[in-house]
């Protein structure tokens, strides 16, 4: 780092951008983990269906398999965009 970089306005460092992006993608990939192998595919297809009606982004559909007292629960979370 030279003296000049102290004078220039601070740009966001690329490492912090990397960290943020990783946190998001890793959280998403973990959400379908440990469940049946079809979960990621199911998530993709659900996303496509939702998008036919509502413009949502990649993270809008969250699919999760939970086990509760011997019972498997498929949990779907769809976040819709805020109404104008």
């Amino acid at each position: 780092m030279s003296i000049f970089s102290y004078l220039l306005p601070k740009k966001e460092k690329s490492a912090s951008v990397a960290k943020e992006r990783l946190q998001i993608i890793v959280a998403r990939e973990r959400s379908t983990r440990g469940g049946p192998d079809y979960l990621p595919q199911l998530q993709e297809e659900l996303l496509m269906v939702v998008r036919k009606y509502v413009p949502v982004d990649q993270d809008a559909v969250n699919v999760q398999m939970d086990r509760e007292s011997g019972c498997e629960i498929l949990e779907l979370n769809i976040t819709l965009p805020e109404q104008e």
Binding site: M1, K13, S14, A15, S16, A18, K19, L22
Partner: peptide, 10 residues
């Protein structure tokens, strides 16, 4: 240190 690489803590 120059912010170009993820740190061990990250």
């Amino acid at each position: 240190e120059s912010g170009q690489m993820l740190s061990v803590e990250d």
